[in-house]
Nucleic acid binder design. Structure first.
Lengths: 325, 325
DNA sequence: TTGTATGCGTTATCAT
DNA sequence: ATGATAACGCATACAA
């Protein structure tokens, strides 16, 4: 038994095809007709065919979401929140994990286009990503151009906040640690904010920025160079991500430096153990829910053109045990 | 400028519509024609409309994936792996997060059906889930019935392995800790395997199983009851998940019990910090990649009927610092 | 081997 | 307000 179509429902209900369509789409129709159609739908267990619908109308209620992966808890939670926001608006989500592969990302954008998605939410660091006209696209964390809205957290402010918190907690000599691709400029804003606050506060600081390919041991070497008689030159370290902070904490432990007594550490992201338990470290928390909600708002909005080209969401500080306060 | 259709390509290339369709679908066609069509496609930047295609043909290359959420690192990694396996076969993924809501799960199954997905991979603990005929569905971790293939890890074997490893490492008095819904029977297999191994090895054991609503402190109370003069009755604890093990480790630390010297702890899942760093604890590792690959294999296979109704994948033990070996 | 014509299930535009 | 009918873009059986 092939799946019933509107035609079958119409025959079953003894009404015309168009009437069924109206009932299905909530368009007003005679009370008696409506009931008959609804009963017929129930009896036949009819379900609308979204392909036929998508072909005819332009709305598909499908949004493509592109992220590097779901292994990283930050991305995972982001996608989780986006999924919820989307579901609340009756949108479905087509998910693409790009694994940071530029070619794949481009491929997926085209795929999304041919899937006739109503929009794309993408977190990509591909500098050359070609964005097809006609499909609303919202970018997370990466600014492409004025006509591609970007939503991100206030990385600059977060960097400032990190420095301020460290100083507030008594630190007098700071370090900023970062690893990652040179192409990605958002993390650099964290650095810029950090530097700006250090200078405003008149606190000395050191930057250690290593490239993506560089092994982690570069940081160990760096820290060891700054270790004299069991005492570290720095009493406050700001790491560009919680993940890095977590690694650094391990290294500090190996060096027998007590945290937060001798060195205080702040990360960035606000990632939690098992997704919802304790923080890994004191950190600057990204407002993931807000980012997700904002993206969904924008991408499902009719007029993406008149959307702001950059939305910067406020971050907050959270004490996670690796700072004094 | 509306998007070009096959008709436009045909006109541009000076061939018939059918010829374009053949070229697009890789059906042999005269060399000269093929080239002309491909050039026209390139010129017009034509992309096939998957809704029209989906309407016409029955394959949509869309698979629906349903999981409770992506916050839990286990689910996140699972979805990540499924996404990869799917992509490798040119399938797209429609993602639904159910938040353990039975009603939503049912709703999503219907949605998937109307989206004409080629199959559904679902991780649901809904005992009454109605599975529509006609859409291949593969279940993860939950056995529905013989005609719904289920793939899961060897929970029973994992339970055995945990007990064996603890005993192998010198434990003489074990405990099994579990929290969760009574409805979910897979974790009970972990318990059953654990019990079976304990009895085979002649090692005394205690079970502490609490209900989903119960606060975590029930475990703290339990442990404190078994603490005499700073010494715990148990020297080996098997926790039903890594997440629980993680919490228990915190409690043991508060009780000033040294791990693994005084008490050894084994979790279940094999979850890692930040998705890819160190383990949280010694653990029984679920073969997530294999589970994902198996699901994708089965759900994309033509004849799901002749698939085995239960595939049980082997787990492994991994030392994560909370056991002696 | 290439072209033509029909229909997939729906929506929307018409008359009625 | 309801019913008939023409697209939507593509695949395919059939004719050339």
């Amino acid at each position: 038994m092939p799946k019933p179509t509107m035609k079958d429902v119409a025959r079953e209900a003894g009404v015309a095809l168009g009437t069924v369509s109206k009932v299905v789409n909530g368009i007003p129709v005679g009370e008696e007709y409506r009931v008959r159609v609804e009963e017929a739908i129930e009896r036949l267990n009819y379900r609308i065919n979204s392909y036929a619908k998508g072909l005819r109308s332009s709305r598909t209620y499908l949004i493509a979401v592109m992220v590097p992966n779901l292994i990283s808890p930050f991305f995972a939670k982001l996608v989780n929140c986006i999924n919820r926001s989307l579901a609340a608006r009756k949108y479905r989500m087509l998910l693409f994990a790009t694994d940071y592969d530029n070619e794949q990302e481009q491929e997926y954008v085209y795929l999304a286009e041919q899937q006739k998605v109503d929009g794309i939410i993408c977190l990509s660091y591909n500098p050359n990503l070609i964005i097809p006209a006609g499909v609303p696209l919202v970018s997370i964390d990466r600014y492409f151009s004025t006509n591609v809205p970007c939503v991100s957290s206030d990385n600059y402010g977060g960097g400032r906040l990190a420095a301020e918190k460290l100083v507030e907690n008594g630190c007098r000599n700071l370090a900023f640690l970062r690893i990652g691709s040179k192409l990605v400029n958002e993390p650099n804003k964290r650095k810029d904010g950090f530097v700006s606050a250090c200078e405003a506060l008149g606190v000395p600081y050191t930057l250690k920025i290593i490239d993506d390919g560089t092994p982690y041991s570069a940081f160990e070497d760096f820290l060891r160079e700054h270790l004299h008689d069991g005492k570290l030159d720095f009493d406050g370290i700001f790491c560009v991500t919680d993940s890095l902070a977590h690694q650094i904490l391990g290294t500090l432990r190996d060096m027998e430096l007590r945290v937060p007594e001798e060195v205080q550490v702040i990360g960035f992201d606000g990632v939690r153990c098992f997704g919802d338990m304790e923080l890994y470290c004191s950190t600057i928390v990204q407002p993931i829910e807000d980012i997700a909600a904002t993206c969904v708002d924008m991408v499902t909005e009719k007029d993406l053109d008149k959307a702001p080209s950059l939305v910067c969401l406020p971050v907050t500080y959270a004490q996670g045990g690796t700072t004094k306060g």
